[in-house]
């Protein structure tokens, strides 16, 4: 059933399986996430942790037939997107849910001009004449700070840099004023001064009450942008918390390891703390807690039993048997 009206997106118990040469692999397991209206929720984790697959599932854009949702519900504005008929889903995507990816080039048509693509988006979802749509397109290119917007209207994607294309994608996302923006590593390929412009645009969307699911591996971006954060590791959510709590008192050893490995702009520590070992890939996930082979605090129970996400108070939860002891203990000794 749909939840209270303040919740825009409610992912419940999502599991996704991919058919591969090595058999069927579960790459996302029992993931639950909640986005309130106008909130920015970060989904952070290293490559292969399942964060992008989670986002693609919301949009029902998993590569078929290899990838499929095997369990769960995705509630958005009162309907379960996993059970929405395709033609209705097409209206939801674009109009109510917008998306931005790391590679804007792949999301735009190479054959059509920027202006035509923006105008087309407008005309698809709003009844407007060609001229009106073109004016609207120009207005939004200006809003996102694209240099020489009049000329760019008639440019094709290959004539623009990655940073300019990402601004075009955001113009396309912003013009329909969606309830939800899914941004998958939107600034990863961009330089920091251009990243700052893109993050600024996303803040403007938030101010207009758009909820944002921001997927990134960059903890600096998470810190700057997010209200709450979900940390994923090896296909599972290992911690969810309000952003300040996550950075000040991480309740999962993996989160703690990630934060210790973060570099600051201040005087460097002589040695960085690293997380030993490698990020495991699907199909080679260890039993019990999937982080246990790399965890300095693992004990017998971690090797056999899967730790459930347990509430540690103040909206923070972690999938660790020691979560209770970790909370509120950022700089302290291990429990």
């Amino acid at each position: 059933m749909p939840t209270s009206s303040d919740i825009i997106l409610d992912i419940r118990g999502l599991s996704v399986r991919f058919d591969t040469d090595d058999g069927a692999l579960t790459v996302v397991e029992n993931v639950s996430l909640c986005l309130p209206r106008g909130a920015v929720v970060g989904l952070v984790g290293e490559s292969g942790c399942g964060k992008s697959v989670t986002a693609l599932s919301v949009l029902r854009l998993l590569p078929a037939p290899a990838g499929r949702v095997t369990a769960g519900e995705i509630w958005f504005e009162g309907e379960d997107l996993l059970r929405t008929p395709p033609d209705r889903l097409r209206r939801v995507r674009g109009q109510r849910i917008a998306m931005v990816f790391q590679e804007p080039m792949t999301a735009l048509s190479p054959l059509h001009t920027i202006g035509d693509q923006l105008a087309e988006t407008w005309r698809l979802h709003r009844s407007a004449s060609r001229a009106e749509a073109r004016t609207e397109a120009l207005k939004w290119l200006r809003r996102v700070g694209l240099p020489d917007p009049e000329e760019r209207l008639d440019a094709r994607p290959h004539q623009l840099s990655g940073g300019m294309l990402q601004r075009v994608m955001l113009a396309m996302a912003m013009m329909l004023h969606p309830a939800l923006l899914i941004a998958d590593e939107p600034t990863t390929a961009l330089d920091v001064t251009i990243q700052a412009q893109i993050l600024d645009l996303m803040r403007q969307m938030k101010e207009r009450d758009t909820a944002i699911l921001l997927i990134t591996h960059d903890l600096g971006v998470i810190w700057e942008m997010c209200d709450t954060v979900a940390v994923m590791y090896a296909g599972r959510v290992v911690e969810t918390a309000p952003v300040n709590a996550l950075f000040q008192a991480p309740a999962h050893p993996y989160t703690r390891g990630l934060l210790d490995a973060v570099l600051s702009l201040g005087a460097p520590a002589r040695r960085l703390k690293d997380i030993p070992g490698q990020v495991p890939t699907a199909g080679q996930y260890p039993p019990g807690c999937r982080f246990h082979p790399r965890c300095p605090f693992a004990f017998d129970r971690c090797r056999v039993e899967k730790p459930p996400l347990q509430d540690v108070g103040n909206g923070q939860a972690a999938a660790c048997f020691l979560a209770g002891q970790w909370a509120g203990n950022r700089s302290g000794d291990p429990p």
Binding site: V192, T193, A196, D200, W223, E224, L259, S264, L265
Partner: peptide, 15 residues
């Protein structure tokens, strides 16, 4: 413009 954890989230100089 470099996003760094724990740094005050003040107004950034956006070029």
């Amino acid at each position: 413009a470099t996003p760094v954890p724990y740094r005050p989230r003040q107004n950034r100089l956006v070029l």
